[in-house]
Design a protein around this nucleic acid. Structure first.
Lengths: 333, 333
DNA sequence: TTGAAAGCGGTACCAG
DNA sequence: CTGGTACCGCTTTCAA
């Protein structure tokens, strides 16, 4: 079914049909009705490819995220999608699974679709890709990538600052021996947390221990916790690179009969919804996903908000959220 | 940048450029190299719209889910996406948020994109929509919708059976007074669980109580649990319509100092990954998402698997997973 | 109010 | 091995 078909059937020109499809006022209502009817009868669906090819514009924004399983990324995508829908746009996601090749493929696909804008919210990133992307005529917004480009905006969060808030709080509670469970992959965003941890610990001359989970799954963070306990380091607090990992750690400690936070305090990072209902609820660092999504969208879509922030660097603030998984350091027995 | 541009720049015909883009063997390697080079220089990205318009085929499969926040749906989408990628296809998702209008819009969009197939994995569904979809020439596979169509496959799970497994297990543990926390929306899949619960309880002349959460969020299931406890019904077991709700319930019970499963047993439904790390781990019903995704994909993509299951009805089996959130019914004090 | 025709960027078939 | 060209289905002037 195409415009021409229904045009013929309705006895009007293709142009007229196009008009009613697009809600053009200049069509006699009787004609409009007739066309509308035939469209229903032949159940016509406009070919979006033809549409955007002819129209040139796409009205869809592309979102690239590392991993939809992580509520952090999912949330940002969802919020961008909502904003898009609400503003007459469409959205397309693609998960890279931390694989630069898939990232590249995703970008190709987005550009090939001639999307109106691309939001790249991934943790993995090669300089080459950033560079390539900055040559494109499409507006691009990155989250978390070090460098900007001409028409490339970069939103970033000071992970170090978040880590500092967490540690200052823990030090205030009397903790000294602390461990950090880091991410399996060397992503900039997570490495920054690890480094910050190590540096601050060193600055306080506090005994630190870092261990890396072997994958993204709960089983791995549990395993990491188990290993940590076996290692004999005996931390009074375990800081996790993100909330999801902390959930696994909480589980492992529970299984081993270790009370949180009485014996060991645990913290997460991200403040995903789940962190409120873990037992105990997680002390964590809030990353303003809502704000990030909104900023990303505003940058990509012209919007009435006046001046475009294209090409700028936007900073976003982390915030310490104290819940029940942290408490005073246990007194040395 | 289009084919013509780079053709001109490279001093060859548009056709030749098209050939190298598509990896056609019949191009002198020197020519190929030259063209390739100019493509890089002008960083050319083929216009996918033009491509699928001209080619007619789309090589992308569309997935419609109710809610990506629910790991159940997310998981199915991810698996379908993986299968797609692995087989040279692309995929597009759209979340309906349980809204028939958004579902309709999503379908329009998929058809408009002329996708190769559509997987509709949503809980909300209007007869009208099913009907409309069955008129389309595109292969469609539903999960969980009562009725099939000509070229429409329907994959279904016997929720009642799962509920029965759960209840038989609980009865065996000595439970009688049990409550069910149901979904805020009257979705077929969730209603079926509720009804099954009620019927089985009636059959055993056991005291039953049903309460509905007011939303999808953790806060709501907690609220529902709180209300349930206040109501004075005093169940020895609380069955939740899905795992996510159970997480909230577990949290609320924990806050109130009620021990699970010693004082009250709790169950979920779906067997999402999270259910393994809740404290205590959830007894639940496994829904074979992997299998569902695989089936859906096989139906949509011709595949070498011989006979197409198009238009059939495929059944999938639930399975009881016993973990630590359930135990013997407490002895009446 | 309505219609005709020129693209949009590719694909694919037919010649050479 | 390379080039010419007729569409794909729709948007968008320009006329009528």
């Amino acid at each position: 079914m195409k415009l021409a078909d229904i045009a013929e059937r309705a006895g009007v020109s293709l142009t007229t049909v196009s008009r009613v499809v697009n809600g053009d006022r200049n069509v006699k209502s009787s004609t409009r009705a007739r066309v509308q009817r035939t469209m229903d009868e032949l159940n016509y669906y406009p070919n979006l490819h033809a549409r955007s090819l002819a129209g040139g514009n796409s009205k869809t924004i592309g979102v690239l995220v590392s991993n939809l399983d992580n509520p952090f990324f999912l949330d940002i995508y969802r919020k961008i999608d909502n904003l898009a829908q609400r503003n007459g746009y469409d959205s397309v996601v693609s998960a890279t699974h931390y694989d630069p090749d898939r990232l590249r493929a995703g970008i190709q696909s987005m550009i090939g679709r001639r999307v109106a804008g691309i939001a790249v919210v991934v943790s993995e990133m090669e300089p080459h890709i950033v560079e390539e992307l900055s040559k494109v005529e499409i507006p691009v917004v990155f989250y978390d990538v070090g460098r900007g480009g001409k028409r490339v905006t970069n939103i970033r969060l000071d992970y170090t600052k978040g880590m500092r808030q967490l540690l200052e709080y823990l030090f205030a509670l009397g903790h000294r021996r602390m461990a950090f469970i880091s991410y399996p992959l060397p992503l900039q965003s997570t490495e920054e947390r690890r480094t910050a941890f190590l540096e601050m610990m060193a600055a306080h001359a506090a005994p630190a221990h870092v261990i890396s989970a072997s994958s993204d799954e709960f089983a791995s963070s549990r395993e990491a916790a188990r290993e940590l306990l076996r290692a004999g380091f005996e931390p009074t607090a375990i800081l996790c690179v993100n909330d999801l990992m902390a959930v696994g750690v909480l589980k492992e400690l529970s299984e081993q009969g270790i009370s949180v936070p009485r014996q060991i305090s645990v913290t997460g990072y991200d403040n995903i919804p789940l962190s409120q209902v873990t037992i105990p609820a997680l002390t964590t660092i809030h990353i303003p996903r809502e704000e990030i999504a909104q900023l990303a969208f505003d940058v990509l879509v012209p919007g009435r908000t006046g001046s475009s922030k294209l090409g700028q660097e936007i900073l976003v603030e982390p915030e310490l959220i104290v819940r029940q998984s942290t408490g005073l350091a246990p007194v040395k027995s």
